[in-house]
Write a protein that binds this DNA or RNA. Structure first.
Length: 491
RNA sequence: GGCCCCAUCGUCUAGUGGCCUAGGACACAGCCCUCUCAAGGCUGAAACAGGGGUUCAAAUCCCCUUGGGGCUACCA
């Protein structure tokens, strides 16, 4: 396929969610696959809903996932500008051309009148639809309204009969009666275009080959076809990708928990894992492979293998996949990823404030191998390893006491453990394990009994990294100190 | 309400008329491994929405019903 040019055209009116970004991801993959061009275009034609933070969030989301664009705001390109508010004059000109050729007309119907019209139609159980009254306004009447300061819009003259059809790459032919479509607004009274006009004009001028967008646009595509016809533009290929729904099968929203890509980043998900996961939501390479690298995804990707039905976002599976990615990463890579988390001043994310920063990388490097197969998200690491950094840990008598034993016997065995810690020549996990297993043997206790008690003594936790490795990393002094503290607790 | 889209295990999906007593993955249950938790291994439970056609043969093609979703703005 030659000259593939696709765009991601978000409207900066809110934080982009997983669904938006998944659409961008498909477009990006498709562009890469065909050595095409991926374009970012900001559709900021709604002045009332514009939110500058959202544009920043869009850019950060795309960058984090590695969806770099070849043309776009700031970086430019041959078809700019790439922000619609900066292209205003183009749309006005096009709209005027349409009026001159009689394919569009000025309308001075006020919002109040429109509202009345809809209400009365509703009362009569008719579908709410603009009635085309502006078609019969004379030039003079419009001028008069304009002088009076009434809002003037431009509407497209839509044929009353016939069918409008187009081919969607994923769904095939879609057809609708022209009479279902009213004379819709293409230029608003503030002289800004509506989405319908703006994107058609831009897609044409920017030589977009495939319009890849969400399924919710299917029902307005016939309008877009009409605009193309009025302007005598060639049609792009239409690719409507399915929606992503929340666990209750409704459109993704706040109540579904984290919905923005950046939230996942914040929660300790890895960009490569999210990329992989998202690519499989609504698309499949056709075999059983699920763990795919970016390159594999790009080479396997095919538009017509995108599903036509919407998908539900399964956080559980993402967590699993994220865990797989973490396990597959080198220790060095994980250390890099995890340092900002551990050092974070956010109490719910980082180590307690009393732990000195910056963290010692060498020490961390000993810890990471012990936990990397135990975490599904990067953020989970903090709770699992904080005891390596704390000076003191808290314990209860109940945790320390050796199960099925009394205080006295527990103390006796823990004292022998102290001896082992003292006398193990090379203080490494292997020697320690050998010696402690000996003790278990001699004292006729179950390994689990002693080791659980020791685990609590050293970490203060029921769930912790493997015991002897922990001892080795913690070092002799800290081990002695903590086991002694535990014994004190029992006395 | 009208129009449009969609429909395989709880979830993501494979499946494009015979290879389907429907395959994989997550999650779930059981067992094994085991110092906890993970990881890993094995086993299990779990789906073609319903009804009509077409065909020698239908998860796969057609129609209807049902269900879900989207759109129905001077929002995108």
């Amino acid at each position: 396929m030659n000259n593939v040019r696709v765009r991601f055209a978000p409207s900066p009116t809110g934080i982009p969610h997983i669904g938006n970004i998944r659409t961008a991801l498909f477009a990006w993959i498709f562009a890469k696959k065909h050595h095409g061009t991926f374009i970012l275009r900001i559709e900021d034609t709604d002045q009332n809903r514009y939110d500058p933070n959202s544009e920043l969030a869009i850019i950060e989301s795309l960058k984090w996932l590695g969806l770099e664009w070849d043309e776009g705001p700031e970086i430019g390109g041959n078809y700019g500008p790439y922000r619609q508010s900066e292209r205003k004059s183009i749309y006005v000109e096009v709209a005027e051309k349409l009026i001159e050729s009689g394919k569009a007309y000025y309308d001075d119907t006020t919002p109040e009148q429109l509202k009345e019209l809809r209400q009365s139609q509703k009362k009569q159980k008719l579908p709410p639809r603009y009635d085309g009254r502006g078609r019969y306004r004379t030039k003079e009447e419009i001028e008069k309204s304009r002088d009076m300061g009434l809002p003037i819009t431009v509407r497209l003259k839509v044929p009353d009969t016939g069918k409008i059809s187009f081919v969607d790459t994923i769904r095939g032919k879609i057809e609708v009666d022209a009479r279902e479509i009213d004379d819709f607004v293409i230029l608003k009274s503030d002289n800004m275009p509506t989405y319908h006009l703006a994107h058609v004009v831009d897609d044409y001028l920017m030589r977009i080959s495939h319009v890849i967008r969400a399924e919710e646009w299917i029902s307005s595509t016939p309008r877009h076809i009409l605009i193309h016809q009025a302007l005598e533009y060639d049609l792009p290929k239409y690719v409507h990708v399915p929606l992503i729904l929340g666990s209750d099968k409704s459109k993704l929203s706040k109540r579904h928990g984290a919905t923005s890509v950046l939230e996942y980043k914040k929660e300790g998900f890895i960009n490569d894992a999210l990329f992989n996961f998202l690519s499989l939501l609504g698309w499949s390479p056709g075999d059983d492979k699920e763990l795919l690298s970016k390159n594999e995804i790009i080479s396997e990707f095919q538009l017509n293998k995108i599903n036509s039905s919407s998908a539900i976002f399964d956080l559980n599976k993402l967590e699993w996949m994220n865990g797989v990615y973490i396990r597959g990463y080198s220790d060095e890579k994980i250390i890099e990823e995890v340092i900002p988390i551990l050092e974070s001043k956010d109490k719910s994310i980082g180590l307690p404030k009393r732990v000195k920063r910056p963290l010692d990388k060498k020490y961390l490097a000993k810890i990471v191998p012990l936990v990397k197969e135990r975490i599904r998200t990067l953020n989970e690491i903090t709770e699992l390893i904080d005891f390596f950094y704390e000076e003191n840990i808290t314990n209860t008598k109940e945790n320390i006491i050796i199960k099925k034993m009394n205080d006295k016997d527990s103390i006796k065995i823990l004292n022998k453990s102290i001896d082992i810690l003292n006398n193990t020549k090379s203080f490494n996990s292997q020697s320690l394990e050998t010696n402690f297993r000996n003790l278990v043997e001699i004292e006729k206790v179950k390994p689990g009994q002693l080791f659980t008690s020791l685990r609590y003594a050293l970490s203060g936790k029921k769930i912790a990294p493997p015991l002897f490795e922990t001892m080795e990393v913690l070092g002799k002094e800290k081990c002695l100190q903590r086991v002694s503290a535990a014994i004190t607790l029992l006395t």
